[in-house]
């Protein structure tokens, strides 16, 4: 309740502080309302919506091209215990991080879909063409093979044999044009 009221009663002037070292590629749109901390590289034509969260705590986060990171999606390179080497979190191209999805994965390939409210733990390696269904949690220590689909209330898995490339290019192009009209964007530092 307190949280709800604070949003209504105008704490909007406080924008989240984006502290860190950002490299943002050509044609990418990263809104200032997104929370970015740490060393983050974002490839060209990637769209980061307001209120999306990217934290580079345990090393840099490197995001490829044509990724779509929606509102309240969380991408974290988790802080590792002392003594362990710093590892970058590399995310490939054409991935879709939907509303409220949470990705703490070690590495993410290309053409993956993270559906709303899914959780991917920090010991998981996501390869290509995977679909993590909404509300599905993967927190084991494993590599998801290419084309893994996890969906349903029981988190059932199967493997796609036929992979179809994502079709969100048109939507991304549209958002790249539209978002800067209504939001301030972060420039590369």
């Amino acid at each position: 309740m307190a949280a709800r009221r604070s949003t209504i009663r105008g704490e909007r002037t406080k924008e989240p502080k984006n502290v860190g070292n950002f490299k943002i590629g050509q044609g990418a749109v990263v809104c200032t309302e997104a929370q970015l901390t740490g060393d983050i590289t974002i490839g060209s034509h990637t769209v980061v919506h307001p209120t999306a969260v990217i934290h580079a705590e345990g090393g840099p986060v490197i995001i490829g091209e044509n990724n779509h990171i929606m509102e309240k999606a969380v991408i974290i390179n988790k802080k590792r215990p002392d003594g362990e080497p710093v590892k970058p979190l590399v995310i490939g191209n054409n991935n879709l991080f939907e509303f409220l999805s949470r990705c703490e994965s070690m590495s993410v390939g290309s053409e993956n879909i993270f559906e709303p409210k899914c959780v991917v733990g920090d010991n998981v390696i996501v390869s290509d063409y995977c679909v993590i269904g909404s509300e599905c949690k993967v927190q084991s220590n494993e590599t998801l093979p290419s084309g893994t689909v996890i969906s349903g209330t029981d988190g059932r898995r199967w493997n796609k044999q036929v992979n179809i490339k994502s079709e969100n290019h048109q939507q991304l192009e549209y958002l790249v044009k539209l978002l800067p009209n209504f939001h301030r964007t972060i420039k590369s530092t």
Binding site: V131, G133, V149, S151, G152, W158, K160, V162
Partner: peptide, 12 residues
């Protein structure tokens, strides 16, 4: 044909 939930397709 394409399933929007589990991404199954008839090509599968």
């Amino acid at each position: 044909l394409f399933c929007t939930s589990c991404h199954w397709t008839t090509r599968e």
